[in-house]
Amino acid sequence: MRVPAGFAAGVCLLVALVQPVQAQEDALQISFSLPEIKTGQYQRPYTAVWIETSRGKAVKTLAVWHGDKKWLKDLRRWWRKTGRYQEGDIDGATGATRGPGDYQLVWDGTDSKGNAVAPGEYQLVLEASREHGSRSLMKQKFTLPDSSTHYRVKAGKELGAVDVIQP
């Protein structure tokens, strides 16, 4: 869903905090949440956030939060598109699983090797998979470069609503 940037600024604190800086540094600002789920068997979800071309080729992993790699394949799309190839350096994006809360990520417009990508159509993909729980997969297409753009993706079972901003 595309909403007017002005409206976006009103609802999203992130916009107010972020300085309108040069193009690539913060080509894409992503804020999302992992919802609190009331269950006796809560395990933190495996979560991945990454960029793909509009045709579904992985460009760069922004975050992958996981435990034992035996279950990394349960991030089915991320594993298939990029995880299994161990492309580029994703140490900076890798971390332990995280609990319910709000999270912010930024994409600087580069690929897994750190090179700036060509202008064009891309998509942001978020995937979360939880033991004893469900899997959520979200996608948002966007154009690079673009400005004053705000997309909002509806919440799913394992991922809260996502705000995507191109300042």
Binding site: D68, K69, K70, K73, W79, G83
Partner: peptide, 9 residues
């Protein structure tokens, strides 16, 4: 059909 672990499985 697809495995992701670090150790043989």
């Amino acid at each position: 059909y697809n495995l992701s672990g670090e150790k043989p499985e």
